[in-house]
Design a protein around this nucleic acid. Structure first.
Lengths: 187, 187
DNA sequence: TTAGCCGCTTGACCTGCATCAAGAAAGTTC
DNA sequence: GAACTTTCTTGATGCAGGTCAAGCGGCTAA
């Protein structure tokens, strides 16, 4: 549980007895390569920190997939809108490589919110991060060309090309796999 | 301050002394038609409830504007990513019609967060709404054609056509004004 | 090792929407 | 209410990037 403690303590501090309560409800969940972690139509019960592996979040529509995001390193993972509303997910979360998530259940998190005011703050701070991240992505999708979006992603997360299939990156960038392939070929 | 009390009480409840504290920091801010409420490069100091009028949020890039959202009715208004980070805004918030916002300053809100745990919860719940709304918009931008996006908007917010310029709606839907005009013309 | 899949590349073609342009309509200002 | 500005419409043209198709190369599994 060192991972959880280190990660959370970047946001809020607890007393030692509070830490015991907080840490006690997290558990490790392993997933095989390709395994669906949360399916479309299911309610997302978990909020997770990535311990190992890479995951992708995507939306399925008439046979196509639109990739919305990736999680890896020590980032957050989960289907956040389904999680906060506790309503069926429109997205799929899938392990791209063998993965271990360290996760807390929605109901356990609500109990922590009730008991520990600083936990409520943690929830708020995480959501603030998500809002900022989404705003940035929206600007980039709206104002940059395919080429510029690719350049921007490579500048920010070059390691992503090694972690996930090129077609998923293409989808994430809002272009066809062929277009991304051609962008990479020239120059 | 009835508006503020009614709006907030849809999310959390306070004791009467807490309500006094909470309500005391909100103030009305009037804006003329066309007035810029928060400019790009400025830090957004306010989180607001719309009392009157319509506002638009947009991003400027090499002479063009990309409209990101509107606020009207009794919705929230403000530049949320700049507000939560207290960093310069990439967006502009502008009054489309004569407007009155009822607003709380960032530092006053932080003080309320410190003093009233239920206020922290209010902040969290608002952010949850924002995250869900952004996820829905992202799905629609990614998976629907120009025609479908227009139909969807008309089904959900038909009154918007009366409130703002057609070119801003076009921009919000991610298409040129000419394309929207043609969509509306046919059938 | 080999057979079978995917995923990646490359080429040819196509199309939805942007851009440019110009006139009509509507809104704003004094 | 006349002059000006801005927005909306409609037509003509262009192009970025999508779609279809075929060959290749590299994992995966028995």
């Amino acid at each position: 549980m060192e991972l959880v403690r280190n990660t959370i303590s970047r946001y809020v501090q607890f007393t030692e007895p509070q830490w015991q309560q907080v840490l006690s409800v997290w558990r490790e969940r392993p997933f095989a390569k390709g395994e669906v972690i949360t399916a479309a139509g299911d309610v997302e019960h978990w909020f997770s920190i990535v311990k190992e592996g890479t995951q992708r979040l995507f939306f399925e529509h008439d046979g196509n997939e639109a990739c919305i995001g990736f999680s890896y390193g020590e980032s957050w993972s989960g289907i956040f809108d389904s999680f906060v509303q506790q309503r069926p997910s429109r997205f799929v979360l899938q392990a791209v490589s063998p993965s271990v998530l360290v996760s807390v259940r929605h109901d356990d998190l609500q109990r922590l919110y009730e008991r520990i005011p600083a936990m409520e703050r943690f929830g708020r701070l995480i959501l603030e991060e998500l809002v900022v991240g989404r705003a940035t992505r929206e600007i980039e999708q709206l104002t940059l060309s395919a080429q510029q979006r690719y350049d921007r992603l490579m500048a920010r997360s070059p390691q992503l090309m090694q972690l996930v299939a090129q077609k998923d990156i293409a989808s994430y960038l809002g272009m066809s796999p062929e277009t991304l392939s051609r962008l990479r070929a020239k120059k």
